[in-house]
């Protein structure tokens, strides 16, 4: 259990438990009509589903803070719908539901990721910001055509398809920003 938070102390960014689900507070609006009773409207976003919830609390109500921990873990392998991660310090393993991944194509074997735990249960994974992958399939590149913003599709080693500049060739290694899924640069790497 996280700590108890008085509604009057609640601030944006706080993480609270609502019916066992962790929510992050988006906005806190204290209202008090003239001669009236105070109330606080809280807008919050589920850290699991992303659903937005709005609730109104009376003055003096208490909320329970969510027990959220972010742990550095290494990706080991997939096991059906579960992905297995390991804490390299304690050798503890965590099974993460694949549904927490919008794009598994950027998850490389042995990648060091940040696993978000709620009451010790994994609820999300933050991938390393940059990944480097080999292009395994793309149209041949044209040397001369380096005009900006001309992109083509390239299939990478994990099967994910990324838009790349036209000069990229099959066998090149490229760096990708996992937050946006966009190509960043070509890297020199020997196989």
């Amino acid at each position: 259990m996280g700590q108890v938070i008085d509604i009057n102390e609640l601030r944006r960014g706080n993480k609270i438990d609502i019916d066992g689900e962790p929510y992050q507070v988006v906005s806190v609006d204290f209202r008090k009509p003239g001669k009236g009773t105070p109330s606080t409207s809280v807008k919050m976003k589920s850290m699991i589903s992303g659903n937005v919830l709005e609730r109104t609390y009376k003055s003096g109500e208490r909320l329970s803070g969510a027990d959220i921990e972010e742990r550095e873990m290494q990706y080991l392998y997939a096991e059906g719908d579960q992905l297995v991660f390991m804490d390299n310090a304690t050798y503890e393993q965590a099974h993460v539901d694949a549904k927490h991944f919008e794009e598994r194509g950027f998850l490389l074997d042995n990648a060091i990721c940040q696993v978000l735990l709620h009451n010790g249960i994994p609820i999300g994974v933050t991938l390393p910001t940059w990944v480097e992958m080999e292009v395994i399939e793309t149209e041949p590149g044209f040397k001369g055509d380096t005009a900006n913003n001309v992109l083509k599709a390239a299939k990478c080693s994990t099967g994910v398809i990324v838009q790349v500049p036209i000069f990229i060739n099959q066998g090149d290694f490229i760096r990708i920003d996992t937050r946006t899924g966009e190509y960043s640069e070509r890297v020199t790497k020997t196989r």
Binding site: N8, V28, D29, F30, R31, K32, P38, T40, S59
Partner: peptide, 8 residues
């Protein structure tokens, strides 16, 4: 005491 918000 205890009144703090956008308009308090």
């Amino acid at each position: 005491a205890g009144e703090i918000g956008r308009r308090h």
